[in-house]
Amino acid sequence: MIEFVNVHYYYKENSSLILNNISFTINKGEFIGIVGRNGSGKSTLARMFNGILIPSKGKVLVDGLDTRKAEDLIKIRRKVGLLLPNPDNQIVSSVVEEDVAFGLENLGIKPEEIRLQVDEALKLVEMEEFKKHPPYLLSGGQKQRVALAGILALKPDYLVLDEPTSMIEPEGRKLITGLLKQINSELGVALIWITHDLEEIIEADRILVVANGKVKEYKKPKELLGKADIWKEAGIEPLAITQFMQNLKQYGIDFKPEEFTVQEMVDFLCRLK
């Protein structure tokens, strides 16, 4: 379990709060979506999970380990992986498999063990055939999968994803989105998925809405998705279908919340004819 307890964050004493008294918990194996405007504090939040940033006030606990304690940090970083938006900032080696091995080597794991874990991680992200490639010849999506493999090789319990697809081409995006969901459902790795795109987190267990450094909502998607107002206020684009329902409502066509796909919407409108 990850616990944020009254977390505050500011750059300088007396400067404005980036995070303002944030408290929430995430259980093992959960899939959590985090959304908020540019500048709402999401990326700061992302860097709190594994102690890259330490709360100015309050605490973050990972399975009881405290990110403020230096002696806990190594354990925490093995438990919590962080994937950044741009894989170019995360890839360090000139050969794919060496890059995936980097974290394991750092931990002093035996070479034969490393070999096994690297192969397994590359298989998980469907990049086995590229293991001898230099990363710079790969597409953005492929590089992102290599960066992900590097994290998975460490067998984390939690995976923090800071807009993992925002810099990736659309074809690569679909693949990564699918892989991540699979990692969650099959391996039980918890996902903490920061995004602007509600479509990506529609299947999440809960969605955390951040606004002005505070937690606005923390609920099941079903309880939130239909409410265009919440999204507008949080500066996030509601699902296209929610917006279109809103437009139709203005013109006197009222929908029940369960009309959620294009086909269902068309059928509903046909019945009104």
Binding site: A240, Q243, F244, N247, L248, Q250, Y251, G252, I253, L269, L272, K273
Partner: peptide, 19 residues
Amino acid sequence: REEAAREIAKYLGTLKDEV
């Protein structure tokens, strides 16, 4: 979207006078 909603409403006859 607005325009699309309006066309649908026009066809279904739900367009209110004020809009």
